[in-house]
C-alpha cells in the first residue's frame, strides 16, 4: 500500500467520528454485508462518512492492510476499527453498538 493511500485512509478515519468503508453507497449498496452494516447505522440514526471502496482499488486493498482485516465492510468509530459485518451485527444485537455510539449522538 502506497504511503499516500495509507495517509488518505488515516486522514478519513481520524477526521470523522464514524466511517464505514463499504462496497457501493448507503443508498446503493453493492453487497449484502455492506448493506446490512449501513442499515444498522441508519437504525441508530448516527451520521457516518461512507467510503465506496469500489471506486478505488488501492483503497479497497489498502484498508485491509490498515486494519489487518481481510474483508469489506469495515466500520471505524473514533478512529478505532470496530469490525466487519459479523461483529457489528453481533454488537448491535447485544446492545454494545448502542453504548459505543451513544456519546456521539449527544455531541452531534
Amino acid at each position: 500500500m502506497s504511503d499516500s493511500v495509507a495517509q488518505q485512509i488515516d486522514q478519513v478515519v481520524k477526521s470523522n467520528d464514524v466511517v464505514l468503508f463499504m462496497k457501493g453507497t448507503p443508498d446503493f449498496p453493492q453487497c449484502g454485508f455492506s448493506q446490512r452494516v449501513s442499515a444498522i447505522l441508519n437504525a441508530h440514526e448516527i451520521p457516518f462518512a461512507a467510503v465506496n471502496v469500489l471506486l478505488n482499488n488501492e483503497v479497497r486493498e489498502g484498508i485491509k492492510a490498515y486494519s489487518d482485516w481481510p474483508t469489506i465492510p469495515q466500520l471505524y468509530v473514533k478512529a478505532e476499527f470496530v469490525g466487519g459485518c459479523d461483529i457489528v451485527t453481533e454488537m448491535h444485537e447485544a446492545g454494545e453498538l448502542e453504548e459505543l455510539l451513544a456519546p456521539l449522538k449527544k455531541e452531534g
Binding site: D68, F81, G83, D86, I87
Partner: peptide
C-alpha cells in the same frame, strides 16, 4: 477482543 478472535480464525 472479538476482532482478535476473528483474526485468529482467519
Amino acid at each position: 477482543s472479538r476482532i482478535k478472535q476473528h483474526q485468529m480464525v482467519y
